[in-house]
């Protein structure tokens, strides 16, 4: 019962509400196994209860069973073994055919997203043969609804696992070994994913969002991500940008069109267009962003972002500038 109610309490991170063809196959298999196992469990419990409560038929020395009864008992046991084997073969067949079905999603022309796991965030790169058409972002994958998308998986440090239960099963991100997974969302929506392989202190705070947009909206989003943010005209934003470029931000983070070109942390070029901060840990609000910049180790202890002691004027300017990066 808890399993049915749980999805509504944990923010849509659930395999019971499938929104993709592959997740639908997996959900079907799950319900088949659930009902078969429930029936078997109830049948076994009923048989056990009957055996316990039935009074002994005749009083004789223990162990002395008449031959005709012994024959009947062995027929019952043989029948039960036969049914068990049959049920197991049905489940095996269902499992193999589900595996085949979820692997059959392929397309010759599809968007390729390279997803690199870091401790503890996701680097997202939309591949394109033309370098200017490459989009880099973090912790958020936009995909067009109704189209298969190829996701290339890699890891920068330890083994992570990509799992968006509403769309597909899990696939590991292994350092030094690239793999791929195909996903498809049938309907527009926001589907939460998380790292499903223990990867250190903040494994639990390594989430991501897959946002399925209608194709036209996706194209608009992609065009927006390709834009280099214009240099700010407002003096406050100019000061913020100057602090970002000259201060400690620039050595790890990249902002297109500025001197901040670090590659160690998430790309901030369009930070304000994202919904969350710190790998789907916090909603992307001004207060959260300020708290994260000043004291990230209280929010995610052990993460690789150091605390930054900015003056309040500098911090406000940096926040205003980062919020302008739509």
């Amino acid at each position: 019962m808890i399993a049915f109610l749980l999805p509504n309490w944990i923010g849509g991170h659930t395999a019971y509400h499938s929104h993709g063809v592959q997740a639908a196959h997996i959900e079907g298999l799950w319900w088949l196994m659930f009902w078969v196992c429930s029936v078997v469990f109830v049948a076994v419990m009923v048989a056990l209860g009957a055996a316990i409560t039935r009074p002994p038929r005749e009083s004789g020395p223990p162990g002395a069973i008449p031959p005709e009864r012994r024959e009947r008992m062995s027929r019952v046991v043989a029948g039960a073994v036969g049914v068990t084997v049959l049920v197991l073969f049905v489940l095996l067949f269902a499992s193999v055919s589900t595996g085949r079905a979820i692997e059959s999603l392929r397309a010759s022309k599809a968007i390729t997203v390279k997803l690199t796991g870091h401790q503890w965030w996701w680097e997202v790169e939309y591949k394109d043969p033309v370098p200017e058409h490459i989009v880099q972002t973090a912790n958020e994958i936009h995909i067009p609804a109704g189209q298969p998308v190829r996701v290339e998986l890699a890891s920068a440090d330890v083994i992570h696992s990509f799992w968006v239960p509403s769309l597909h099963g899990k696939r590991d991100l292994i350092p030094g070994h690239s793999s791929e997974i195909w996903i498809q969302a049938d309907r527009p929506g926001v589907y939460r994913g998380s790292c499903a392989e223990f990867c250190g202190h903040q494994h639990a705070h390594m989430g991501l969002l897959v946002i399925a947009d209608p194709p036209a909206q996706y194209a608009a989003w992609y065009a927006g991500q390709l834009q280099t943010p214009p240099p700010p005209a407002d003096p406050l934003l100019q000061h913020g940008r100057q602090v970002v470029e000259a201060g400690p931000c620039a050595i790890c983070h990249n902002i297109q069109g500025t001197q901040a070109s670090g590659k160690l942390g998430p790309d901030l070029t369009h930070l304000a267009s994202r919904r969350t901060l710190a790998a789907a840990t916090l909603p992307n609000t001004r207060g959260n962003l300020g708290g994260w910049i000043v004291d990230p180790q209280t929010i995610k202890p052990g993460n690789q972002m150091p605390a930054n002691s900015l003056t309040s004027e500098d911090l406000q300017a940096v926040l205003a500038y980062l919020e302008s990066l739509k």
Partner: peptide, 8 residues
């Protein structure tokens, strides 16, 4: 100086 936090 100023580009890497002192702690680091």
């Amino acid at each position: 100086g100023g580009h890497i936090p002192d702690d680091q």
